Amino acid sequence: MTAHVIADDAEALAVAAGLAEAFRTEAPVRDAERRLPYAELEQLSASGLLGVTVPADHGGADVRQETLAEVFRLLASADASLAQIPQNHFVYVNVLRRQGTTEQRKFFFGEVLAGRRFGNAQSEAGTRHVQDIRTRLLPLPDGSHELTGVKHYSTGALFADWIPVLARAADDNLYVAYVPRDADGLTVVDDWDGMGQRTTASGTVRLDAVTVPADRLVPHHLTFRGPQLHGAVAQLLHAAIDAGIAGGALAEAAEFVRTKSRPWFESGVDTAAEDPLLIQRFGELDLQVRATEALLGVAARAVDAARDELTDASAAEASLAVAAAKAHTTATAVLVADALFEVSGTRAALDSLNLHRYWRDARTHTLHDPARWKIQHLGRHVLNGTRPPRHGLL
C-alpha cells in the first residue's frame, strides 16, 4: 500500500474536510444496509490522514492535537461510524510514541505512513470492570510470548493491518502486543449488532495461542508511572466524535426544515424556516453546539500545552479540560440528535430517511464511558484540589 504523506496541519484539515464531504453522501445507505466501509477506509489510508501524528523525525506532520480533534469532528459530522474506526489507530500510534523502542518506532511509524491501519483488541466482557484485563501473555523459551484471550468491542480490527492487543504478562503488568491481522490463531468475528455506529464492525477478537515476538511488545504499564496524556488524547477524540454528531444533526435538521417542513398553521408564516418558535429553538441548539465545540477546542489546546511541557500539573489540567469537553459533548450529541425530530416534525420519523442514525450513533457512542465520572473528577478538583487519577480513561 502507498499513501500520500501530509505535510502540515493546514493540509490535514483540508484533506479531512474533503473526505467528510465525500463520505457524507452514502452515509445513510451504509448505515441502513450495514454496508461496511472498506472502500472508504482505503480512501482514508491513501489520503495520508492516518499518518498525521507520526513525529517529524520519522517523516510525519506531527500535527497538533487541536488539529487532530478537528479532523475527527469533521469526519464524524459526516459519518460517525467511519470516524470511530480510526480512533484506536491514533491511540496506539501514541502508545508507540510514548513507550516504543527506537526500532519499534522506526518500523511501525513507517507502516503508518504507508497507510496501514491499527485496529484494537482491548475491552473484555464478563470481567469485574473495564480495567480487569484477563488476556494473558505467557513467556516461551525462545523469548517470544504466547497470547491467549477473547476481546469484545474491537472497533477497527476487521479492517486492520495490525491489531494492538491489551494483555497482562506473567508479572501482571500491562503490555500492548502489536499482532498482524493474519497471524495464526487470531480470528476476528464480525458479530457487532449495536443499534448505532452500525458499520464500525466492533466485534470479537479471539486469540488462541498467538505467537508474539519480543520486539512486538510495548510495556504499557510504564505509561502510568509518571505524568501522561494517554487517556486525555483518547478521550479528546471521543469528544470530537460526539461534537461531530451534534453538528451533523443540527445541519441535517436545518436543511430538513428549510426544504421539507411545513409551517404550523398558527404561526402565520409561509415557510417553516420563518416560524419564530422554530427560529428560537434552532438558536438554542446552535448555542449548545457552539459551546461544545468551544470546550473541545479548549481541551485540545490544553493537551497540546501539556505535550509541549509535560508535568503532573499540565497533565492534570489536560485531563480535566478533556473531561469537561467530554461531559458536554456527550449531553450535546444526544440532545441535538433528539431535537432533530422535535424541530422537523412527523415526516422526519420515516424510517426510509434514516435521520434516526444521528440519535442511534450518539446514544451508542456516548455509552463508551460514563460522563458522570468526568464530572465527579471536576468536582473533586475544584473543591479539594484533587488531581485526576492516571488510569488512562480520563
Rank of each mutant, 00 (worst) to 15 (best):
Q104Y: 02
I163S: 01
Q122E: 07
S123I: 11
R168L: 13
L166Q: 04
L174S: 06
W162Y: 10
L113Y: 09
E111F: 04
A170F: 01
L113A: 14
R128L: 15
F107G: 10
N173I: 03
G156L: 07
H129T: 05
D142L: 11
G110M: 10
F108N: 12
F118N: 05
S144H: 06
V165R: 00
L166E: 13
E124Q: 15
Q104F: 03
E146N: 02
V165H: 00
F107L: 15
E111S: 10
L113M: 13
Q122L: 11
R116Q: 12
V165K: 00
L138T: 12
Q122C: 07
Q131S: 15
Q122A: 03
A121Q: 01
P141M: 03
D161G: 04
S123L: 15
R168V: 14
L137C: 08
L138W: 03
T155D: 10
N120T: 04
E124V: 04
E111L: 12
R136S: 02
F107T: 15
R136A: 02
S154K: 04
F109I: 14
D161V: 07
K106N: 06
F118E: 12
V176D: 13
T127P: 07
A177R: 00
S144Y: 01
R117M: 15
A160Q: 07
S123N: 15
Q131H: 12
R136D: 01
V176A: 05
Q131R: 14
V130Y: 06
L140D: 02
S123F: 14
H145R: 09
G156M: 14
L147G: 10
E111D: 12
Q131V: 11
A170M: 11
Y178L: 14
I163D: 00
G156F: 07
Q122K: 06
A121W: 07
L137D: 10
D171R: 02
W162P: 05
R117E: 14
Y153I: 13
D172W: 03
